[in-house]
């Protein structure tokens, strides 16, 4: 009861939103769509949620066809859109009740599924949704998306603009939901969250760059990569960008990730070049690629 997309295209007038999107999400899998704003993530969700017709291609959700079986799909998926989708003028409890009623169920019937999440906002159940903080809104929206016990859950950028602590809590909730057998398709622009998914699709400008486990994607990175550091970050980046042997140079936290064009690369040479350019306190050490390195390399092509 997973998700399957095959050669999905969608354009808005002349603007191509997504092109030739093909991937499968296995039943019970936590699958991540990873890419920046404008990559086409929301278009894919809207097509799968039967809110938008593709121009070409086929897709099924929980074994149901997105065109033929659209009504059945709407009953078996939970969808949490990127923008806050709740009724601002209804209270927390009223929102939840509303969504339960729409789906012909009650809060009590499926309470065990949302208990974990809803308990955190229950003290504010009489507060209007519009008056909640970002983190609480997110928890309420997730509760509403789950209240009819969906087989498949679509989460479009649930953690955008959310601080690292709340993001961590949110991913822990997703892991618990996955254990209950729910298939989850989640999108995020935060590449560090990719590591928390079983498999990911990297997406940019409407096209998929790669699909694999997060580990396999970073293992495929074609170059040796080095952490470089010096006393002046700005000068270090500029100096490396001017170096004739530089293949790529990107700031990564306190280091710069550096790759060299040559097959055989000696750190001493680079050290010497940086020293002669007036940089001090230089360190160069091998490191591993992360998802952002992989994304940037794939996006280049």
């Amino acid at each position: 009861m997973g998700i399957s997309l095959s050669n999905i295209d969608k354009s808005y007038k002349k603007q191509i939103a997504v092109r030739n999107i093909t991937f499968d999400v296995n039943p019970g899998e936590l699958f991540g769509l990873i890419g920046p704003d404008g990559a086409g993530k929301t278009t894919i969700f809207r097509i799968l949620a039967t809110l938008l017709l593709p121009d070409n291609g086929k897709a099924t959700v929980a074994g149901l066809d997105i065109i033929k079986d659209y009504k059945a799909i709407r009953n078996s998926v939970g969808y949490m859109p990127g923008r806050f989708s709740l009724y601002q003028d209804l209270t927390v409890e009223e929102n939840l009740n509303f969504f339960a009623t729409i789906f012909g169920t009650t809060i009590a019937e499926n309470y065990d599924l949302i208990k974990d999440i809803y308990e955190q906002i229950a003290p504010f159940k009489d507060r209007r949704a519009g008056k909640l903080s970002g983190g609480m809104k997110q928890k309420l929206a997730l509760s509403c998306a789950l209240i009819h016990k969906p087989k498949v859950l679509f989460l479009d950028e649930p953690t955008t603009g959310v601080d690292p602590v709340s993001r961590k809590e949110f991913w822990e909730m997703l892991k618990r939901l996955q254990k209950r057998g729910i298939t989850i398709l989640v999108s995020t622009p935060y590449m560090d969250e990719a590591a928390l998914c079983d498999r990911i699709a990297l997406i940019q400008e409407g096209e998929i760059l790669d699909i694999d486990t997060p580990q396999a994607i970073v293992d495929k990175f074609p170059k040796d990569i080095y952490n470089v550091k010096a006393d002046n970050m700005y000068k270090l980046i500029q100096t490396l960008q001017r170096y004739e042997h530089t293949y790529s140079v990107f700031p990564f936290g306190e280091f710069v990730h550096y790759t060299d064009k040559r097959v055989t690369f000696k750190t001493e040479e680079l050290q010497h070049y940086l020293e002669s350019s007036g940089l001090n306190a230089i360190t160069i050490a091998p490191t591993h690629a992360d998802i952002e390195d992989a994304f940037m390399e794939l996006a280049k092509k």
Binding site: T160, M296, A299
Partner: peptide, 9 residues
């Protein structure tokens, strides 16, 4: 927020 990794850098 939401910017691709290259542009972010």
């Amino acid at each position: 927020g939401g910017v691709d990794p290259i542009t972010r850098r």
